[in-house]
Design a binder for these strands. Structure first.
Lengths: 211, 211
DNA sequence: GCGCTGACTTAACACTGTTAGGTTTTTCAG
DNA sequence: CTGAAAAACCTAACAGTGTTAAGTCAGCGC
């Protein structure tokens, strides 16, 4: 006995090797530019072998996205329950920017590419803050609102969350897309992000002088 | 004589027909999903005929981007010289959001796709606000700073412009990418954009109560 | 020993952007 | 009016893509 176990373990290992090779090439060359043949070559298999583990190139990509979504949610969870929700919100922002700057290619896959099915594939973890980074953000925004420190018009956690997310995403995304565009003299992303976050929060605050 | 003129006119006409067909299909199906054969078929030509007018599919795409960049700059120019620079800034924001919502596919091509050469192709209009929408924005931010109404740390027009641009871009881009994502209950983009813009300006303002 | 399962390969398909080489029409100098 | 050149366009093909149908072949339970 035990040989059956070995078989499934070996299967899982080659599956993992495919994922690793695909990630490496996707990150280095981009998704469009890496071919199934290149991935297969990387692990010394035939292209068709991949299809015994993933239904298509797209499904392979989705699996990688799934892993990264979990990684981001884990990074948020590590922030934990900081008492002041506004402080927690800005920590979330920092973690988000860190993630984006450390893994720009993954960031592009998660937030700058349209895959109508990746969210459907993760439907079961929706709303669970340990798996769903957006839920963690929204809950924190709700806590911020609950302190009563925001102006009256900012009473919708969903909308506040979308504003916070959008401002950081915009900065990161533009920076990635227009990185080596000579037209724009980019400032340091982390610094601009921090200033933008502070301004946004101050602008929503009831008493903008006080923090 | 004049037949030579007719020839060049006819050439320009087919070139335009190619552009129109390409735009139509790019917008409807997306760039990757539309083939040169489909574009050719649309205007009842052979695929190779296109190559007598554009060197490649990519060059065809770049030409379309060029046209749209000019259209956006023209929309900004139509705002004109509103006296109050803060008022002008928020008008720019409105025009930007309008452009994005009216032409989401074009928006994706211009600001959500990486083409390292489109900016090089437009190098000659760089800094000219009649052709360069970013320059128009930056100049307006400089005017806002010059009023002395912003806090001391917001003295860099480039950085302020990037913050303003980023916040709106983020909202639009996320909305396009995650449009039919069931996880996020999107609010009305124009309303959220307006609130975000107001908050950001108020947060940068020296006297946040006053406008 | 024997059939069977399952990992993997070979060969091919339909499709993509692109090109070499031809055909046909139009232009224009002599 | 003629003949050469040019331009617009087409036919056929190439190399490369994701993907699949039809194998091969090792190792397992009976």
């Amino acid at each position: 006995m035990g040989s059956r176990e070995r078989r499934t373990r070996e299967r899982a290992e080659t599956r993992q090797r495919i994922l690793d090779a695909a990630r490496k090439l996707f990150v280095r060359k981009g998704v469009e530019a890496t071919t199934m043949r290149a991935i297969a070559n990387e692990i010394e298999y035939t292209p068709t072998a991949i299809y015994h583990h993933f239904a298509s190139k797209h499904e392979l990509l989705l699996e990688l996205c799934n892993i990264d979504f979990r990684a981001l949610a884990a990074a948020f969870l590590r922030i934990g329950r900081v008492d002041d929700p506004i402080e927690r919100l800005s920590r979330i922002g920092e973690a988000y920017v860190d993630f984006a700057l450390e893994h720009p290619m993954q960031y592009q896959l998660l937030f700058m590419t349209r895959h109508p099915d990746v969210s459907r594939a993760r439907e079961h973890v929706r709303g669970d803050p340990t798996e769903d980074a957006y839920a963690f953000l929204r809950d924190t925004c709700a806590d911020v609102i609950a302190t009563g420190r925001l102006r009256g018009e900012f009473g919708d956690p969903e909308e506040v969350a979308q504003m916070a997310w959008a401002s950081l995403h915009g900065l990161i995304a533009l920076h990635i897309i227009k990185e080596d565009d000579p037209w724009i003299e980019w400032r340091d992303v982390r610094r601009t992000a921090a200033r933008m976050g502070e301004s946004l929060i101050r602008g929503m605050h009831r008493m903008p002088g006080v923090e």
